[in-house]
C-alpha cells in the first residue's frame, strides 16, 4: 500500500499550519468526513440492514485512517475482525430477528430528542477539550510505526500478559455464545436423515 499512499502526498510534513494542509491531511479529512457521515446515517436510518451496511462504510473508512496514520497492521486487523466477522455477525443477528425490508418501526425509541441533546453536548464538550489540548501538536508520520514486524516485536516483548489474558477472554466468549445459543436440551436432537424412534418433544418447560 505504501506506493498508493505515496501517490497521495508527500510523507514529510512540509509546513505546519492549518491553512496549508499536506496531501495526507486532505485525504485524512476527506475519509474522515465519509466516516462521520456514514456513522451518522448508521445511527439515524430506520432500515436495520442499511444501518449495518453504513457501519461497514464507517469501519472500512477507519481502516483507511489507520493506514494513513502508518498503523498498517492495525488496519488489516480492523478489516479482518470488523468487516469480516463483527459486521457479519451483526447482519446475522438482524436477519435472525427478522429484519424487514424497508423502514422498521422499532428502530428508534421515544427519547430521541434527549439522546440528541446528550450527543450534541458530549460532542461540544469533547471537541472543545481535544482542540484545546492539541492545538499545537503535530504527528510526525515519517517512521513506519505499525508494520507487522514492529507489531510482533512490541506485542511479544511488552504485552505478553494482556495477550494471554485475552485468549482466556476469547475462549470464554466463544463458549458463552455457544452455550447461550444452544436450545435447551439440545444435546440429543435427532440428526437429519436418521429415523426417529419416538416423536421428540421438548420436555415441559
Amino acid at each position: 500500500m505504501s506506493t498508493l499512499l505515496a501517490a497521495a502526498g508527500p510523507l514529510e510534513p512540509a509546513a505546519r499550519s492549518y491553512l496549508s494542509p499536506t496531501g495526507q491531511e486532505v485525504v485524512f479529512l476527506l475519509v474522515g468526513v465519509l466516516v462521520l457521515g456514514a456513522a451518522v446515517v448508521s445511527v439515524t436510518t430506520r432500515r436495520l440492514v442499511h444501518a449495518a451496511l453504513w457501519l461497514v462504510v464507517a469501519l472500512g473508512g477507519l481502516a483507511v485512517e489507520f493506514l494513513l496514520l502508518t498503523a498498517e497492521f492495525v488496519a488489516w486487523v480492523q478489516v479482518l475482525v470488523y468487516l469480516g466477522s463483527v459486521i457479519v455477525l451483526v447482519l446475522f443477528g438482524l436477519m435472525l430477528t427478522r429484519a424487514p425490508i424497508g423502514r422498521s418501526p422499532d428502530a428508534d425509541s421515544g427519547n430521541r430528542p434527549a439522546a440528541l441533546a446528550v450527543g450534541l453536548a458530549s460532542a461540544a464538550t469533547l471537541v472543545t477539550l481535544v482542540v484545546d489540548a492539541f492545538r499545537s501538536s503535530w504527528i510526525d508520520l515519517s517512521g513506519a510505526a505499525g508494520t507487522t514486524r514492529v507489531t510482533g516485536e512490541y506485542l511479544f516483548s511488552h504485552w505478553v500478559l494482556p495477550f494471554e489474558a485475552l485468549s482466556v477472554l476469547l475462549l470464554a466468549a466463544l463458549i458463552g455464545a455457544i452455550v447461550l445459543s444452544r436450545t435447551q436440551g439440545g444435546r440429543a436432537r435427532p440428526r437429519a436423515g436418521k429415523l426417529r424412534t419416538a416423536p421428540t418433544k421438548p420436555k415441559e418447560r
Binding site: A165, V168, L169, A172, A173, I175, G176, V179, L180
Partner: peptide, 10 residues
C-alpha cells in the same frame, strides 16, 4: 476487568 465481567454475562 473484561475477563472478569464477560463470562458473567453468559
Amino acid at each position: 476487568l473484561e475477563v472478569a465481567t464477560l463470562p458473567g454475562f453468559a
